[in-house]
Write a protein that binds this DNA or RNA. Structure first.
Length: 595
RNA sequence: GCCCUCGUAGCUCAGUUGGAUAGAGCAUCGGAUUUCUAAUCCGGUGGUCGCAGGUUCGAAUCCUGCCGAGGGCGCCA
């Protein structure tokens, strides 16, 4: 019904276009954990370890080595042996690529990676697209439902979370090889249209609509809404308009169509600016003609029953409140729409999962909706990724209170702050480049501010936080990346006849080793961030990489180092740049070569 | 009334199956630039993890109660 707002390929071409070299090796965690499990099974062949956690994970403290496993303490009891005794048996052998294993404390097993094996691992992924990230989603499809703004309302800072977090999840899944169907489930249907149509008929300022369509539609809605609160006949009229719309009245239908088109036009601008694109833009209205069928099916299955004139589904077994699927006036509501939507998606895409990214207030709704979907026989994995509501220091914001901050204004402000910084620190840059850099830096700052927090944390908006340009921020990562690009340029200038890749990576200094260990973690971090739906896991990792790199950069010479060491260090620089650039791209953030 | 989240340094936040001496950033104090981008780096100060019990080799993390904040609870989405 709706054309795509942004052609997908134009936005993600760089991410999905190239053919990736198939991954031959496993990730480090996968490899070490696999070894651990096999080791347990070999030593205790009569014990069933299925379901027991044996993950080998990055060490919680560098003093303990590179990786650690805490499984022994838990398993020892089941084996009726002392943990340290079990650990001693385990460490009698050592996995490939590990220099030594140590037993510490009550039974921790610490893994110290072998320097040479670590270096070989990095050499192997250097210059590849995937940087060691496995295609664990190959052959699987996920439908990702995110952003979903309401028609006839401007996008404000409250919309940025679903859009930015959803988009990062989109990119992460795509990179892991999943087929992603990103669907913008627009709020283009519902009772607000009766109020809006009435407002449009009575209060329209045609010129204002031309100048700033969304602002005018919003004004009309607010004005009409306010009148409906004190004027009962107005409210009745609004309902009548809504019924006419729903019954297909030509005039109201045309108005609605106009509202939708005007809004889509505005949204498209914001999405283009944010680098966000969808495969589908199916609003709620797309499923209108399927709603009655859904309800009939619920009745046929004996799941729905009449109650106070409405049709409800009881969820006593699930210990959830009952949920309404048809209003007493015969109209349908959002649960019905969501059911129709998921049935349609299951049929059309046969996805392995449908992921919804919305704010925390909808938790109960999704629990109910998922429960009803199950009862109807939907077996697809349904996931609700909820995030904390954004609020202002003085409390929540709302259209009616008039304290919303429009997304557009936030982005403008971000770019203008970044531009001031670019002009100050790179005065030699021509103005067009300065603006381009400021755009990437400003947008990056805004996105990263949101992504670097645990999604489920409550967010209090502040300009300084949203637009931070130092510390744990996108500009810090972009700066680290740009410095590396500069190193590579200088290397080419001075040693153009050499290729760093012809020399091996040698981890001589402690700081080089620290950096190498971090770089080798990239694949596991990408996989983990995706599987727990938390982009902040990736943010945290990238920040750590950039921090270690900055220390590296500050403490050892690259270009002035002796031959061989120089090449090795330039290779580490190059790999760091690749990890930062790829990592930022997965978050929807650009990494310019100059900033 | 019932349900769901959350409470960690002055501020903003991390904290992976329960793991080792709870970590960052900002702010603050001190130091580093003839050398690869100082949007940087090094170091210091700063915490009864809301409170009280419990579970166990081990709890910020799990359980119970209390205090505080936010959100939700059939005809809005």
């Amino acid at each position: 019904m709706f054309c795509a707002l942004v052609r997908r390929d134009a936005v993600y071409g760089a991410l999905t276009g190239g053919k990736y070299k198939k991954l031959k090796m496993k990730t480090l965690e996968h490899e070490l954990s696999g070894w651990m499990r096999a080791r347990f099974q070999t030593l205790f062949p009569d014990t069933d370890f299925s379901g027991v956690q044996m993950e080998v994970l990055p060490a919680t403290d560098e003093r303990f080595g590179d990786y650690q496993c805490n499984a022994v303490m838990g398993v020892a009891k089941r084996l009726k042996r002392a943990p340290v005794e079990v650990a001693k048996l385990l460490v009698a052998e050592c996995p490939a690529g590990v220099a030594r294993l140590e037993i510490a404390g009550p039974g921790f097993i610490n893994f110290h990676l072998d320097d040479a094996a670590l270096a070989r691992r990095l050499e192997e992924v250097q210059g590849t697209e995937r940087l060691g990230v496995p295609e664990i989603g190959h052959g699987k499809t996920v439908v990702l439902d995110y952003s979903s703004p309401n028609i006839a309302k401007p996008m404000h800072i409250g919309h940025i979370r679903s859009t930015v977090i959803g988009n990062a999840l989109d990119r992460l899944h795509r990179f892991l090889g999943y087929t992603v169907v990103a669907d913008n489930h627009l709020g283009d249907w519902g009772t607000q249209f009766g109020i809006l149509i009435l407002g449009y008929r009575n209060y329209l300022d045609a010129q204002a609509l031309k100048d700033d369509p969304i602002a005018e539609l919003e004004r009309l809605y607010v004005k009409s809404y306010e009148r409906s609160k004190e004027d009962e006949s107005w409210l009745h009229q609004a309902r009548a308009e809504l019924v006419k719309l729903q019954q297909g009245d030509a005039e109201n239908r045309a108005l609605w169509q106009q509202f939708v088109q005007l809004s889509l036009g505005e949204f498209a601008k914001i999405y283009a600016r944010l680098g966000v694109g969808f495969d589908l833009n199916r609003g709620e209205s797309f499923y209108n003609d399927q709603l009655a069928g859904v309800v009939e099916r619920l009745q046929a299955l004996g799941l729905a029953e009449e109650s106070e004139g409405a049709l409800v589904v009881k969820l006593d077994e699930e210990k959830l409140p009952l949920c309404l699927v048809r209003k007493s006036d015969g109209g349908f509501n959002y649960t019905t729409t969501d059911l129709a939507t998921v049935l349609s998606r299951a049929k059309e895409f046969s996805p392995d999962a449908v992921i919804y990214v919305t704010d925390e207030r909808q938790q109960l709704h999704f629990k109910q909706f998922f429960a009803v979907a199950r009862k109807m026989g939907v077996t697809t994995r349904l996931v609700h990724v909820w995030f904390g509501l954004m609020r202002l220091p003085e409390g929540t914001f709302s259209t009616r209170q008039g304290n919303v901050i429009k997304l557009e204004r936030l982005l403008d402000e971000a770019e203008s702050r970044a531009l001031a910084l670019v002009k100050a620190s790179s005065p030699e840059m021509d103005e067009a480049t300065q603006r381009e850099v400021a755009r990437a830096v400003g947008l990056g700052a805004v996105k990263y501010a949101d992504l670097s927090q645990n999604p489920q944390s409550l967010v209090t908006f502040s300009w300084d936080k949203a637009l931070a340009l130092d510390g744990n921020s996108a500009p810090y990562l972009q700066y680290a990346h740009a410095r590396i690009a500069s190193v590579r340029d200088k290397y080419r200038e001075q040693f153009g006849d050499r290729r760093p890749e012809d020399s091996p990576i040698v981890l001589g200094e402690a700081i080089e080793r620290r950096l190498a260990v971090r770089l080798a973690r990239f694949p596991d971090v990408v996989a983990r961030a995706t599987s727990v739906y938390k982009p902040n896991v990736l943010c945290e990792y990238l920040f750590e990489v950039a921090q270690v790199y900055s220390t590296f950069y500050q403490t050892v010479p690259f270009l002035k180092a002796e031959e061989g060491v120089r090449e090795s260090r330039v290779r580490l620089c190059d790999l760091t740049a690749s990890v930062l650039k790829r990592g930022l791209a997965l978050l929807g953030i650009e990494a310019p070569n100059r900033i």
